[in-house]
Amino acid sequence: MRYRILGPTQAIDDRGITLPVGGRRLRTLLAVLALRAGRTSTPDTLIDEIWADDPPQDAPAALQALVGRLRRTLGRQAIASAPGGYRLEAAEEDVDLHVFERLAHTGTKALTDGDPATAHRTLTRALALWHGPALADLPDRTAATRAEALRLEATRARAAAALDLGRAQDAVPELRELTTAHPYDEPLHALLIRALRDTGRGADALTAYESARRTLADALGTDPGPELTALHASLLEQPDPRPDHRPPKPAAAPPPREDWA
């Protein structure tokens, strides 16, 4: 069995068939157990995650009923009753979030180690696991926030790998979307400026820098950091590739006409 929690919670059997996990609270229970795959979750933890500040009057009994329903969907052996609570009988490799985390760390390390091809390939596999907001069925967004931050880090690293591989043209559209979605993220702005520069669009790169500078100044009251500043300086030092638009020299005046006698 495999479990997907990078988006709406899903369970997929060994034949690749998605099993119906109906009801928000049932999906929340499965998401909490999958997040801690192979580890025991106490009844209090599960009750807090499922009902937050509004538990039913007999919460332990309601939890037992949910566990029973989930076992009927997944199979009785999928959820073990252990001393102190319940445990999803699954390895971390069976849960997409944990696979994503492993691939993301492997990919970013490959980039740091100077292997952009492996980094780009691995990070593409990692990001393809997402099919919606992380842990979409959990009321508490703490774990989801950590996952989303790692997703953004992996996306940055993949874009950097693309630039190192000479694929700047392919990276520009995604980087434009990302800088719009994360306007205060200086590393993303730096990647966009690099991509525009590497495609020979120096004027657009300068415009992107100025847009980032204004955003940081207007919203945060700060100046661009060292990376953006160094990129800006390097752009100003590059020769202008545009044709020479200086006005032509005036034509020489015609010689004075001679008078004939």
Rank of each mutant, 00 (worst) to 15 (best):
E93I: 13
V95K: 01
V95T: 00
V95M: 01
L97R: 14
L97V: 10
H98Q: 06
V99R: 15
F100I: 02
F100H: 05
F100P: 03
E101T: 11
E101Q: 13
R102N: 02
R102M: 01
L103M: 10
L103E: 08
L103Q: 11
A104M: 00
A104W: 01
A104E: 03
H105A: 14
T106D: 15
G107R: 06
G107Q: 02
T108L: 09
K109P: 01
L111P: 01
L111I: 02
T112G: 13
T112R: 13
G114L: 00
D115N: 12
P116H: 00
A117G: 14
A117M: 12
A117V: 09
T118Q: 09
T118F: 00
T118N: 03
T118D: 04
A119M: 00
H120K: 09
H120P: 08
R121C: 08
T122E: 11
L123K: 02
L123Y: 01
L123S: 01
R125G: 00
R125Q: 13
A126G: 08
A126V: 05
A126F: 13
L127H: 06
L127K: 04
L127N: 03
L129N: 13
W130T: 04
A134R: 04
L135D: 02
D137Q: 04
D137N: 07
D137F: 04
L138C: 08
P139L: 01
D140T: 00
D140C: 01
R141C: 05
R141A: 12
R141D: 11
T142P: 05
A143S: 12
A143Y: 12
A144L: 10
A144D: 09
A147Y: 09
A147M: 10
A147W: 06
A147S: 12
A147T: 14
A147P: 08
E148W: 11
E148F: 06
A149W: 10
A149S: 14
A149L: 12
A149C: 02
L150T: 12
L150R: 14
L150Y: 11
R151W: 04
L152C: 05
L152R: 10
E153I: 00
A154L: 07
T155V: 03
R156H: 11
A157R: 04
A157Y: 03
A157H: 06
R158L: 02
R158S: 08
A160G: 14
A161R: 03
A162W: 11
A162Y: 13
L163A: 06
D164F: 02
D164C: 05
L165Y: 02
L165R: 05
G166P: 09
G166K: 10
A168S: 09
A168D: 03
Q169R: 15
Q169V: 13
Q169F: 14
D170F: 14
D170S: 15
D170H: 15
D170I: 11
A171D: 03
A171M: 05
A171K: 04
V172D: 06
V172F: 10
P173Y: 09
P173T: 06
P173L: 07
P173I: 05
P173N: 03
E174M: 11
E174Y: 06
E174C: 05
R176T: 12
R176A: 07
R176P: 06
R176M: 08
R176N: 07
E177A: 13
E177Y: 02
E177V: 08
